[in-house]
Design a protein around this nucleic acid. Structure first.
Lengths: 209, 209
DNA sequence: GTCTATAACCGGATAGAC
DNA sequence: GTCTATCCGGTTATAGAC
């Protein structure tokens, strides 16, 4: 464990506050309290709210992008690849549901900062936004599944993994609050998504033969 | 067309502002401007921001609940029922993506108002939260699909319909901005979801025989 | 009912002592 | 580097004339 620098402590506190309340809803006072300092010191280290916000996001995106792209690029056989992708996405989102929810919301509020920041993070790691789709397409082609629309495939994958996690507060209203607490929820969800996607793929393939 | 009451005009303006900015981010001044009046008059009609907020939400939920439950209760054959459900959900969310996004976000910020309001709206119409799940379960049973988990079924349905619409701003980053403008996107998405869900159902059914 | 003017408050940012 | 005290702009809400 490194000596916990105060900047790190601030960033951590700020991340919690920003991801929960959004750029506008977050309060510098709350961040200072969470970090165990006062507002003045907060401004001493990060000048403005905006700068702090961007620092936090850059760091959050960076973590997420590393994790997801690493998995996407793995050259295992198709089934293993898909299964690991699902598992990775599910776990990533489950441990940080705030980020997906936050991006979904914040991107809507006209703020141009987020897309720019995201693209910059991608570029810093040598990736292009189209890389995701071309990789999926290549894997499908190699598997003899050239007739599958990679866009629908991607939409299905993301939707099935992300939605149940970020919609948890709503779903608990319908399903009862104990539902997501069961440890086997992720496991059963993982299996369900894999089966559904795979069956969807081969169904379409049979049709076209 | 009825004489457009000023309260209706305010509620409409407030809905736009609240759904885009959230409870905290919304500004009474902006709502007043959009409604073509001034702040004082706004407070004359709705006293506080909180009251206006609740009025707007009650009305939005009411619309949504009516629309979705009506479709859920239709007693057509299974395929038609599922297909109409998908179509209805997709269109409902497509015409008002703001509401889903808003609920997803706002529910997260610890505010207890939303769940209460939602339950109250359901109760006002004589529905129980568990009604959704029991209805789905009954339809599956009637179709000889008692082995399908209604929770995963519901999760899949909601995820596949809702996610692509609310995640539009992100997806445009990956797919290019023209993708969703194509008029046939909904139609093709509608078909994709129906096929995927149906295949998923019968796949599981075959396995268990 | 509708307006103008203003009170009361909150939150980001800064000054200046230590 | 870290604190206390304060400024200043912006936001909700109200007072009071018409």
């Amino acid at each position: 464990m490194a000596i916990e620098g105060i900047k790190e402590r601030i960033i951590q506190a700020a991340a919690a506050e920003f991801l929960q309340k959004g750029s506008g809803g977050a309060r510098m006072q709350v961040i200072a309290d969470k970090a165990g300092i006062n507002k003045a010191l907060l401004h001493y280290h990060f000048q403005t709210k905006q700068r702090l916000y961007e620092t936090v996001l850059r760091q959050q995106f960076s973590k997420l992008i590393d994790s997801l792209f690493e998995q996407l690029e793995k050259e295992t056989d198709f089934d293993t690849w898909l299964q690991s992708l699902i598992r990775k996405y599910l776990r990533e989102i489950m441990t940080a549901p705030g980020l997906s929810r936050f991006v979904l919301w914040e991107l809507n509020s006209g703020a141009k900062v987020l897309p720019q920041l995201f693209k910059k993070c991608l570029a810093d790691k040598g990736h292009d936004p189209s890389f995701i789709l071309t990789t999926i397409n290549r894997r499908l082609q190699e598997e003899g599944l050239g007739n599958i629309d990679p866009v629908h495939f991607l939409l299905n994958l993301l939707a099935l993994c992300i939605y149940p996690v970020i919609a948890k507060p709503i779903l608990e209203q319908i399903l009862g609050s104990g539902y997501f607490k069961a440890g086997d929820f992720i496991a059963s969800r993982e299996e369900e998504i894999f089966k559904l996607l795979k069956q969807g793929i081969y169904r379409q393939n049979e049709e076209d033969k």
